[in-house]
Design a protein around this nucleic acid. Sequence first.
DNA 1: CCTTTGTGAGGGAGCGCTCTCTTCATGATC
DNA 2: GATCATGAAGAGAGCGCTCCCTCACAAAGG
Lengths: 331, 331
Amino acid sequence: MRRPTLEAVATRAGVSKSTVSRVVNGEPTVASDIRDLVMRAVNDLGYIPNPAARSLVTRRTDSIAVIVSDPSAGLVSDDPMFSTVVRAASREFEAAGKQVMLMLAGSDDARVRARQFVAARHVDGVMLVSMHGADPLPAALAATGVPLVSHGRPTFRLDVPWVDNDNTGGAAQAVRHLLERGRRRIATISGPLDMSAAQDRIGAYREVLSETGRRSIVAIGDFTRISGAEAMAQLLEDDPALDAVFAANDLMAIGAMRALRRAGRRVPDDVAVVGYDDIEAALYTDPPLTTVRSPMGEQAAASARLLLGLLRGEPAAPVILPTQLVVRESS
Amino acid sequence: MRRPTLEAVATRAGVSKSTVSRVVNGEPTVASDIRDLVMRAVNDLGYIPNPAARSLVTRRTDSIAVIVSDPSAGLVSDDPMFSTVVRAASREFEAAGKQVMLMLAGSDDARVRARQFVAARHVDGVMLVSMHGADPLPAALAATGVPLVSHGRPTFRLDVPWVDNDNTGGAAQAVRHLLERGRRRIATISGPLDMSAAQDRIGAYREVLSETGRRSIVAIGDFTRISGAEAMAQLLEDDPALDAVFAANDLMAIGAMRALRRAGRRVPDDVAVVGYDDIEAALYTDPPLTTVRSPMGEQAAASARLLLGLLRGEPAAPVILPTQLVVRESS
DNA sequence: CCTTTGTGAGGGAGCGCTCTCTTCATGATC
DNA sequence: GATCATGAAGAGAGCGCTCCCTCACAAAGG
């Protein structure tokens, strides 16, 4: 008992396969009475086109891959970035009639599979998320010739359009804000230095401090809460007199606030804290977290739109979205 | 300039298409010298099988759909549940060589598309996540005849295997813990009552309280932080003398803690708080949150394995995973 | 009147693979 | 030496669709 085919519909409607195909694909060159006839047969039989047969001949799949190339995929279970980015991108793609294949390219094995998958033209395009510096995947994917965009600026030169937020500007805003608040010993908790967002944010921090003749106090985290807590403990040891800290994302800021609490420091009285991203949780810390709002969802949606444009043959150029300082009680 | 086909490989290796197909699919009935010959041709030409052609004849796609049927998809941007579930399931499917198609079935439109998509046999199976009571999608999907499992027990009778955690047992543990701590006026913040997890948790809360002759104090949220805060404010108004609250998930517990702080109540001195899920953020509240650990990732992985078993023709029965109370300083 | 142009419908090749069936070679058995 | 079982390789028929080409017919133009 097999599903009905184009041919079955054609027979029932008393027309040719070609005509049914035209109706199903919405081509205008079909007389309306014939169209009705065909549609009736389609409904009667419950006909649904076979996507494999279709894409065999059209060489399209109408689906795209979202590849999250993140070694830590699996370590941090609840980074809001993943959820926000994947959902925003999915919405955008689905609205354009593209299906989303999600691939976690955490292990080398998975990266190889992802490459194969894309090279097999299983998808019409690829959106790459969160790549580290040494990651060979972007280049491998670019080499397949499949349209590709990156969510976030790649760390090394690669001819791939990307969308990012203004990491440099955002971080500079955060540090200037702390200076304006009269803070004098401003530390930072950076993200992994093989990620462009972390590079840009710490770069701006250093830049602003050196403009005003102040020295940097740096600890490195990996964008997780626990790494933020550990980095903060380290910073307090390095410079017990610090009076402010700029964390390169909100999760690390949250970790830092816990470490400060445990060390008996009050926020913001003793130490001011500023984060980055403005995730929902930043509203619920005690005190609520001052942070730089990065348009994560919009960035993902823009990446998706960039890829969709690419698929339509439009040219694509990098996009940088503005950020905005959101002042709350932690600073 | 087209990609090499099976035929091209066969010609180059001087064998038939059938033999190449056997080698590519790892069939054992090929002499090893011929196998080497073919593999060399495959590598020389960079041959990768065309998945559309393959699935046209095999009627398999080697991919499955993860359908998140959540009306609020898009409202709450950073629910860790989405991230945890999607990642755990993806890992499991990818390890089994299945690709994951992610579909957000938030709108009616998207639900229709998801149904069509599945009915077109675009995927070999479906894992459904987070369904509300009135959702017509589960039944529609079940009617397509495509193997289907549900992450979380469906609200209404439906012959679909599912995996859930022990919501009743977990919630009962939480409430008993509060009683043991000497709390007398225990309120609850429930999730939406059209979700089975919310139903079970509030059911257990009522059950335990009525066993000990205490009355219920209930407010309804929707599993978001803000709804937790609002519900807590409502509860304080309803019963200013309450001394404990059991929130049906951690996000609402976090919201409740903010509301308590704003109302000038100390946690746990004035009001004890217990959450549910044990998300990472529960470790970073002030004070750290007592909660019921639900094995979210394991539940998703188990759902995925259940579906994989179904695809292999194995029978599938509902699974209930145990929970565990994690006592921290909020109670 | 015949020719040209346009429009709508049908015919059928072919997309790249799998899988059944057939053929052939080899060695074992009697 | 004839027969048979066994294993490995080849042949080729589809899978269900799209899309180019052809064709019939009608209307317009010379």
